[in-house]
Amino acid sequence: MIEVKGLTKHFANQKGIFDVSFTVERGEVFGFLGPNGAGKSTTIRHLLGFMKPTKGTARINGHDCWREASIVQKYVGYLPGEISFLEGMTGMDFLNLLAGMRRMTDFTYRNELIERLQFDVDTPIRKMSKGMKQKVGIVAAFMHDPEVIILDEPTSGLDPLMQQTFIQIVLEEKKRGKTLFMSSHSFPEIERTCDRAAIIKNGRIVAINNVHELQSMQRKLFDITLASEQEAQALAQSSLDIVEHDGVRVRIAVQGNYNAFLAELTKYKVQNVDMHVQSLEDIFMNYYDKRRDGQ
């Protein structure tokens, strides 16, 4: 459904994207992960036909995203990364404008989305909070029931409850056979929705993985508080990956080997467990280091 081949874009400052290739099958949810400035938005801008590639092609449903942009737009729903609307209108005016420009006639799904995201569409846009604007953007991306949905950092600005609702909407769209492409910083979001994910860094695709493989790469940090310092001492001597040891607290890094970790813990009187999920950027770094070690 989405086919990117050797996509290259040079910017004046040596930055850009280089030889980016991937395909997203019909009905697949594809995550696009990377730190800020890695080239996520640049790639998305090519998919939307906002930028002309220096080399290579991006195609959606067989149509070239640059040359046939207005045909491609028929199939696509898009949520931009930066929320900025036209001024001087309400949320509803704005949605009506886009519906008019799409020559949309069926408004049932739009109304359903508004209902689910729970916001007042008649608020003037300049008075909206960031999260509320994001909701308007989400409705704008989904309302015409497009076959392909491209989302740039979709949950930024949403509160945790709305993030849940959003993830549900994504999963429903997936069930309905839609193809979704979403960029994100947030690993849990990708984890819960995506089948596959590509990691981009410095403009190059580093890996395209099954999300479950990525999950096993994710290191989790556990802060264990034990009953006594002796116990903490003993735990710190164990074969687990000890990051830090301070009084009764021990910080342990776990990556995939959960059973060994749990088995070790049962030997002690654990008073508290705190978990820190490793940031995505750290996973990338970890991944790079491993690859470098392997070479």
Binding site: L48, F50, Q73, P80, L86, M101
Partner: peptide, 17 residues
């Protein structure tokens, strides 16, 4: 519209630039 990015919504509709 270009500076603030709002043009993206208009361009994302099936109308040519």
């Amino acid at each position: 519209l270009i500076d603030r990015g709002a043009i993206a919504y208009l361009l994302a509709t099936p109308n040519s630039r």
